[in-house]
């Protein structure tokens, strides 16, 4: 790894006072008596004049434009219900698909137990969610397997500008879709899938310390016996 000593990011706990000089309270924080405190377990980051707490745990809370991987759990004549591993069930309206679904014909296109990749179109204040799989790159997934990780770890799995997923794909050659809701779909040859799944687990178990990309690169280079071509990028410049 590079020369600088690893700096264990400090973990903040709900109720911790944050150093918010001149900053506004961002996500994962709250304002009390003019001071900013952490509301969740996580690490502190600054962004555009806000101080945020990046969560280290917690369930997936849907946000508009998130790409998600969901499971069909129920259906009605003009919609399906999708489990997106979140406190809120997500309906998928028949109109939000690439197909011309006639009323009552929903079962012909998606059954209970099917897996889809799609996006969250909207979330209202009552946390009611609308999904869509209409765009070309979305739809039903077949084959492969689903892995579940903590949604808090998804940004680390993707990496800055996608460099972590690129690194994994470069070596393992797996097809991989990462849902913001912590669901990952992968498919490929047995060895590639084995290594990709292993790396995904390491990322899921990882703490806030920097250097994760280096560790993953080291593992993959050892596993495949060659160096990476995906460029090295420091991942500890204030963001995961």
């Amino acid at each position: 790894m590079d020369g600088s000593a690893p700096d264990r990011r400090e973990v903040v706990i709900p109720g911790d006072l944050l150093n918010g000089h001149g900053l506004k309270p961002g996500s994962g924080t709250f304002n009390e008596g003019g001071r900013i405190y952490a509301a969740r377990i996580g690490t502190v980051a600054e962004r555009d004049g806000f101080v945020d707490v990046i969560p280290l745990s917690g369930r997936y809370i849907p946000r508009s434009r998130d790409v998600i991987i969901g499971k069909i759990t129920d259906l009605g004549p003009s919609h399906w219900l999708v489990d997106i591993n979140s406190p809120y069930p997500a309906p998928l309206n028949a109109k939000e698909t690439p197909w011309m679904v006639e009323f009552g014909d929903t079962d012909r296109y998606l059954h209970v137990g099917d897996v889809v990749i799609g996006e969250i179109v909207s979330v209202d204040e009552a946390m009611r969610v609308q999904l869509s799989i209409a765009d070309r790159q979305f739809g039903r997934l077949t084959g492969g397997q689903i892995l579940d990780i903590s949604p808090a770890k998804v940004p680390r799995l993707i990496g800055r500008n996608g460099n972590m997923v690129a690194l994994i794909r470069e070596f393992t050659n797996v097809r991989m879709f990462v849902g913001q809701n912590g669901r990952i779909w992968i498919d490929g040859d047995a060895e590639g899938v084995y290594h990709a799944a292993h790396v995904i687990k390491v990322i899921d178990d990882s703490g806030p310390a920097p250097g994760l990309t280096d560790q993953v690169r080291a593992y993959l280079e050892a596993a495949y016996g060659r160096r990476a071509t995906t460029p090295a990028e420091r991942d500890d410049d204030g963001r995961h």
Binding site: K71, D83, G113, V115, L141, G143, G144, Q145, I146, W185
Partner: peptide, 22 residues
């Protein structure tokens, strides 16, 4: 809890080639 068809097939496919998911 609904288990997806995809995972059902994945485990069955593994089993058919003598392997298990863990």
């Amino acid at each position: 809890e609904v288990i997806s068809e995809l995972m059902r097939e994945h485990i069955a496919r593994l089993a058919a080639s003598g392997k298990r998911s863990d």
